[in-house]
């Protein structure tokens, strides 16, 4: 399998200067994810699952270790890569999916969804056509496509967010509980879209409150519970 991400000895903690202490999030984590592979992160609350995703995306700076990402430009260590390189990879190869939409005033739902395609160089009309298709897939009603999501309900905003986050196929996708509080139809659409991206070769690392939602996609489970950090075959794991 083509490797996408090799994580070696990754550690993260937070130094809280005003309290004069350090909080350890996770220590010495190593695993590999290949193209088209789906890795579920497991562990109790506070085990560092979301922290690990944010560290891989470089929203957090790791304390030690290597995050070797096999980009289209060759391998690069995301733990130490220049900010401008990380910013470039986030636009082109690495996606991060949460349940929250960053809505902007006076930007329509379809324009928000089309934005990643536009930044990727897709022409306006083509990008908007794909965006509408994605909104339809996630069950956002056509009368809302041209409206501003700032006024939408939480559930509708979440659908817009997912449509946007998954519109551009990427090499690596980090998923931070994207199914939380999603209705059944949108959840099915999400799983279908993830399966499609996975089949096309996207590597995925995800945190799910209810892993059963994505059961058929999971290839491997990485358990972050301290002293239990190892990779297991999914057949052994109680989801």
């Amino acid at each position: 399998m083509t490797p996408v991400l090799d994580i070696e000895g990754l550690s993260k903690g937070f130094t809280l200067h005003h309290l004069g202490n350090r909080i350890e999030a996770f220590d010495d984590i190593s695993f590999t994810v290949g193209a088209g592979e789906f890795v579920l992160l497991k562990g109790a609350n506070g085990a560092g699952k979301s922290t690990l995703l944010r560290t891989l995306y470089r929203s957090y700076l790791p304390r030690a270790g290597v995050i070797r990402f096999h980009s289209d430009h060759g391998p690069i260590d995301l733990a130490r890569a220049a900010d401008i390189d990380v910013a470039h990879l986030r636009r082109t190869e690495i996606g991060f999916v949460t349940q929250f939409l960053q809505a902007r005033p006076r930007v329509s739902a379809e324009a928000i969804v089309a934005e990643p395609l536009r930044l990727h160089g897709v022409a306006v009309e083509e990008a908007l056509a794909q965006a509408r298709e994605a909104l339809k897939t996630f069950g956002v009603k056509p009368d809302l496509w041209k409206a501003y999501p700032t006024t939408f309900s939480g559930g509708e905003q979440q659908k817009v967010n997912l449509a946007r986050a998954l519109i551009l196929p990427q090499k690596l996708l980090l998923l931070d509980e994207p199914t939380a509080s999603l209705d059944a139809h949108a959840r099915a659409a999400l799983v279908a879209r993830l399966a499609e991206l996975k089949a096309a070769g996207t590597a995925m690392i995800g945190v799910f409150h209810h892993p059963g939602d994505v059961e058929q996609l999971i290839d491997r489970v990485v358990d972050l519970t301290p002293d239990f950090i190892k990779s297991e075959d999914r057949t052994d794991v109680d989801l």
């Binding site: 937070f14 130094t15 809280l16 200067h17 005003h18 944010r54 470089r58 929203s59 957090y60 700076l61 900010d83 990380v86 910013a87």
Partner: peptide, 22 residues
Amino acid sequence: EAGLVDQIFQDPQHAYTQQLVH
């Protein structure tokens, strides 16, 4: 300190930045 905007706001390293963000 300097960095990507989400990193500086979510994981500030310097005591002064932590104070500013909080």
